[in-house]
Amino acid sequence: MKRLHLSIALACSVTWIMPLSLYAQDNDAQNISHAITTLAASCAACHGPQGNSLGGTPTLAALNKDYFIQRMQGFKNGSISSTVMHHHAKGLKDEEITALANYFALQQRHTPTVAPHQSFQGAQ
């Protein structure tokens, strides 16, 4: 707390301003909240870091926003059949689906790095 006070006091005397976290950088500018950043991050297990899949599941990064919403709403209302995604889509609110669409549309598409395999060393 002491450090915070010190920092604010120091900062009051300067005018240089930089963002302190990712939320404060691009996402706030696009109105993407922490809540959506963390929710979107939980999609990574199947769809890869920032929606860049290593294959076998769709890449969500830079996906067209309207297409994302159309698919997710279809999974949610049952008009599009799915194997797994209806179990997620039905659990999400409409506004969360829209916000996730915005989030993923803003992510840069790239080839994700494969996790670095290493032969088993026998220590554990």
Binding site: L10, M18, P19
Partner: peptide, 14 residues
């Protein structure tokens, strides 16, 4: 929130 973040960073990075 942005302001608080900015001033903390600014305070230490300047």
């Amino acid at each position: 929130r942005q302001f608080v973040r900015s001033v903390i960073y600014g305070g230490l990075a300047f």
